Computed example of a mutant assay.
Amino acid sequence: MNMGPNFLFEDEKSFDSLTKLYTRDVVVDYVNFLVAEGIPFTLAIVDIDNFKYVNDTYGHITGDKVLIEVAERIKKVIEGKGFVGRFGGDEFLIVFPKITDYKEVWENAHKLMKFMNSNEIQNIIGLYVTITMGISRFPEDDSTYEGLLETADKALYRGKNKGRNCFIIYLPEKHANIELKTEKDRSQSSMYLHFNVFRMLTKIEKLDTGIKMLFNFLSSYFMADHICIQKGCKIYFEKIHKLSRTKDFLPINLSLVDNAMCAPADFFYVNQLESLISSNQSELAGEYSAQRIKAAFACKIAKAEDGEFIILRVDSTIKRIWQHGEMDIYITTAKVLEMLYNSGRLVLE
Rank of each mutant, 00 (worst) to 15 (best):
M261Y: 03
G232L: 00
G210E: 15
I211F: 04
N196K: 15
C233A: 08
K239W: 01
M261G: 02
F198L: 12
V197H: 11
I252G: 04
F195V: 01
I227G: 09
K212G: 07
V197I: 15
T246W: 00
H241A: 15
V257W: 04
S220H: 12
T246L: 00
S220A: 12
V257G: 02
P251M: 02
L256Y: 06
T246G: 00
M261N: 13
Y236R: 04
K242G: 04
G232E: 01
E205G: 10
K234I: 01
I229R: 07
L243V: 03
C228D: 13
I229N: 02
D266V: 06
T209D: 07
I211Y: 06
L273F: 07
V197N: 14
I204H: 06
C228M: 03
N196S: 14
T202K: 15
K212D: 11
V270F: 14
L250H: 03
V197K: 15
M261W: 03
H241L: 10
M200V: 00
N259G: 11
K212T: 13
I229Y: 11
H226W: 05
A263L: 12
F268E: 10
R199P: 00
C233H: 08
D258E: 13
D258M: 05
P251G: 01
A260T: 09
D266H: 06
Q272C: 04
L273M: 14
I252A: 02
L256C: 06
K234A: 07
N253K: 03
L218S: 15
S244T: 01
V197M: 13
L218C: 12
E238S: 11
P251T: 02
D208W: 04
D248T: 04
L218A: 14
C233Y: 03
I235S: 01
F268N: 10
D208P: 02
D225G: 01
M200Y: 14
I204R: 12
T246D: 00
A260Y: 07
E238P: 09
G210P: 13
T209F: 02
F267Q: 12
S220C: 06
L243E: 15
S255L: 09
L250I: 00
L207F: 05
L254Y: 12
V257T: 07
A260Q: 09
S244L: 03
K212H: 08
N196Q: 11
L256M: 05
F267M: 10
Y236F: 14
L254R: 14
V257S: 11
G232A: 00
V270Y: 08
L243G: 04
T202R: 15
R199F: 07
N253H: 04
I211V: 13
S255R: 12
Y236G: 02
K247E: 06
A263M: 14
S220P: 00
I252C: 09
K247H: 04
Q230D: 12
I252P: 08
K242V: 13
